[in-house]
Amino acid sequence: MATALDSRDARDPSDEFGVLLRRWRRQRGVSQLDLALSAGTSQRHLSFLETGRARPSRYMVVALAGALDVPLRDRNTLLASAGFSPAFLARRDSDPDLAAVDAALTHILDKQEPFPAIVIDRAWHLRRANTAAERMLAFLAPDGLPTAADGSIDLAAWIFDPDGLGQWLLNRDEVLPHMARRLGPSAPHWAAGGGAARGGAAEVEDAAPLPPVLTLDVSKDGVAVRLFSTITTLGEPQDIALHDIRIESFFPADDASRAVLEAMARG
């Protein structure tokens, strides 16, 4: 009797694995030879994996995903497509294992006062914010912010909405293309839908080279602030949710902006 190990048909999960692997390799702009060398295999074997003529081991799936810097969530998808169980979990915020990480995030956000700091995921859903960020968001969006399907604040939708942040953003022709690049594949959708940079997705693709440090210049009701940001990630996260998060800290780009933020903190 034929078994799953010696019989191949259109439903073989490794066929799907080959499609996904080739898609990730092309998205990263890596040749078969370069990927094979990085993963410690041969170009011939990699070619067989992509076409479904060979089946990957669990070790090989992990090695290829690591060489391609595939996000943890998508590494699980690659493993499943090859018939293996997931390697990474997404713990709940209440999980005791996350207590130390939660404390670290709280420490970073608190120490950023009186300047804004936020925690976002890779889709730019707002996960946490310090008091300074809450003040700034309340000032710029007094009627509230759009929400995602999970109930979190959808910063991407607000940023590219011409009636959202766009109406207060003085240098939107510089900032929005940069934001779109950071968002990745979903950027053209948001840019076109929100009318980013007067030309939508087309202008995002044709954007001029960015300056060394891009500032966020906002002005509302006579209050002007110029900010630049730094981005912090967790080192070697093994949890899907933690792998997705970014801590973005905003700093005043000049003395006048610093004075405004300090004044806002004093109420």
Rank of each mutant, 00 (worst) to 15 (best):
M1T: 14
T3P: 06
L5C: 04
D6C: 01
D9P: 07
V19S: 12
L20T: 09
W24D: 03
R26Y: 09
R26D: 13
R28Q: 02
R28D: 01
R28S: 02
R28E: 03
G29L: 02
L35E: 08
A36E: 01
G40Y: 07
Q43D: 09
R44L: 05
L49R: 05
T51C: 14
G52T: 11
A54D: 05
P56S: 05
V61S: 01
V62D: 14
A65N: 05
A67R: 06
L68S: 01
R73S: 11
N76Y: 09
S85R: 10
A87Y: 04
A87L: 14
R91T: 00
R91V: 00
D97C: 07
V101E: 12
L105P: 00
V119H: 07
I120D: 02
D121F: 04
D121H: 07
H125Q: 15
R128S: 12
N130L: 10
A132C: 06
L137V: 04
D143T: 10
G144W: 10
L145W: 01
A149F: 04
S152Y: 11
S152D: 13
I153D: 03
A157M: 08
Q167R: 15
W168Q: 06
W168D: 02
N171F: 05
P177K: 09
H178C: 06
A180S: 13
A180G: 12
R182T: 04
R182I: 04
P185A: 11
A187H: 08
A187V: 09
W190N: 01
A191N: 05
G194K: 04
A197I: 00
R198Y: 07
A207T: 05
A208W: 03
A208I: 00
P211T: 02
P212V: 00
P212H: 04
T215L: 12
D217G: 01
S219F: 01
G222T: 05
V225I: 15
R226S: 07
L234Y: 08
G235F: 09
Q238H: 12
L242Y: 12
R246V: 00
I247V: 15
S249Y: 08
P252W: 10
P252K: 11
A256D: 09
V260G: 09
L261N: 02
A263W: 12
R266P: 06
